[in-house]
Amino acid sequence: MRGLGLRGAAGLLAVLLAVSLTACADGGGEGEGEPTVGLLLPSRAVPRWEKSDRPLIEKRLEELCPECRLLYANAENDAASQRQQMTSMITQGVSVLLLDVVDPKALRSSVHAAQREGIPVVAYDRLAEGPISGFVSFDGARVGRLQGRALLAGMSARADGGGVVMMNGDPSSPNAAWYEGGARSVLQGKVRILKSYDTLGWRTENAHDHMSAAINDLGPAAIDGVLAANDSIAAGVISALKSARVSPLPPVTGQDADLDAVRRIVEGEQYMTVYKPFRLEAEAAAAMAVALARGDDIDPLVTTKVDSPTTKDVPAILLTPTAVTRETIGRTLVRGGVYTLDQICTPTLRPACARAGLTR
Rank of each mutant, 00 (worst) to 15 (best):
R2Y: 13
E58T: 05
A213L: 12
Y339W: 13
G8L: 03
D296I: 00
S156M: 09
A23N: 13
Q188H: 05
I193M: 11
T346H: 04
P277G: 00
Q85Y: 06
N77Y: 09
Q343V: 07
V102Q: 09
A123H: 06
L249T: 03
R263W: 14
E267R: 12
A183R: 07
L301E: 11
G330H: 05
L127Q: 10
D296H: 06
T322Y: 12
A240T: 03
P277M: 00
G330M: 02
V338W: 10
A261R: 02
G140S: 12
I193H: 06
G33W: 07
L200A: 14
D260S: 14
D78S: 10
L61Y: 10
V96Y: 09
R44C: 05
D170E: 11
A80E: 15
R355Q: 14
A287S: 14
T87S: 13
P47C: 00
T346L: 11
S137D: 07
V102Y: 06
L249H: 04
E63Y: 08
A214R: 01
A183F: 08
H208N: 15
G181P: 11
P131S: 02
M89D: 04
I119N: 02
G336V: 07
E30K: 08
Q147T: 08
T359W: 07
V122D: 05
V15S: 14
T36C: 08
I193R: 04
E50L: 11
D103T: 01
P66Q: 03
P131L: 04
C24E: 15
R83D: 14
Y271G: 00
R245G: 00
P120C: 02
T340Q: 09
I132R: 03
T311P: 02
L194W: 11
P309F: 04
A354E: 15
G219F: 04
L319E: 07
D139R: 02
G201N: 06
S196G: 07
L107S: 06
V94N: 03
T348F: 10
S95Q: 06
K105E: 15
I223H: 07
S212Q: 15
Q147A: 03
I132M: 04
L227V: 03
A286F: 09
A157L: 13
I57C: 02
T332F: 05
T325N: 09
A354H: 13
S137E: 06
K195H: 13
L358W: 14
K305Y: 09
A157E: 15
G182F: 06
V121N: 00
I57W: 07
T204G: 01
A73T: 06
I238L: 03
S95G: 04
A240D: 10
P120R: 01
R355G: 02
R263S: 08
A128F: 02
V37T: 06
A287D: 13
A10D: 15
A18I: 05
G144D: 08
R7C: 01
R44V: 15
A75E: 12
L21G: 01
I193T: 10
G3D: 14
D297W: 05
A213N: 12
R264Q: 11
S196D: 15
L200S: 13
V338Q: 12
A289F: 07
T340A: 05
G169R: 03
Q82G: 04
G337P: 09
R335A: 05
D53H: 13
